[in-house]
């Protein structure tokens, strides 16, 4: 596995390679020991029918994340090099972050009443058969 942790983020390498199998979504959910899709922080859908290709929605690890700005209780801690970490104990479940994310990469865990936010672990990458996604070093380290 590639190096995990706070200095990495997920990158969509080439969305045209995506076949829509959603193995990444199932992988993300398995991190919690469960099968299914509810807890996935990555989402794949068609771009209006499979004939038009696919869309992969995943956190871009923004430098100045709108989700953090929209959080009324500072539950989303901005990482130094971009992206956020959810502090579930602080989160009141208002859902503002979901609305604020420009690319729709924050999802909702109806069971927990909390947002689902990518932790940049890269587990999904291991299950993408076509290298559509990869773990990338964050900007600072690149420069």
């Amino acid at each position: 596995m590639s190096q995990r942790g706070p200095s990495r983020r997920l990158e969509v390498v080439d969305v045209d390679l995506c076949v829509g199998c959603q193995c990444c979504m199932f992988a993300c959910n398995r991190r919690f020991g469960e099968a299914g899709l509810l807890k996935s922080a990555i989402h794949v859908r068609s771009a209006g029918g499979f004939e038009r290709g696919l869309i992969v929605q995943v956190c871009r690890a923004c430098l100045d994340p709108p989700c953090a700005r929209a959080c009324p209780v500072d539950a989303l801690k901005v990482r130094k090099a971009g992206g956020v970490t959810l502090q579930p104990a602080k989160c009141i479940g208002c859902g503002n972050c979901v609305e604020a994310c420009t690319v729709g990469a924050i999802f909702w865990d109806g069971e927990a009443g909390k947002p689902i936010i990518c932790v940049y672990c890269g587990y999904c990458v291991e299950f993408c058969p076509y290298i559509v996604i990869k773990l990338e070093p964050l900007r600072e380290e690149v420069s």
Binding site: V19, G20, C21, Q22, C23, F26, F50, E51, G53, F127, P129, Y130
Partner: peptide, 16 residues
């Protein structure tokens, strides 16, 4: 022109 898969299948046998 495109390859597609069923949900939860990495094979992508659908040829378009």
């Amino acid at each position: 022109g495109r390859r597609v898969a069923c949900a939860h299948c990495p094979v992508s046998c659908i040829h378009i």
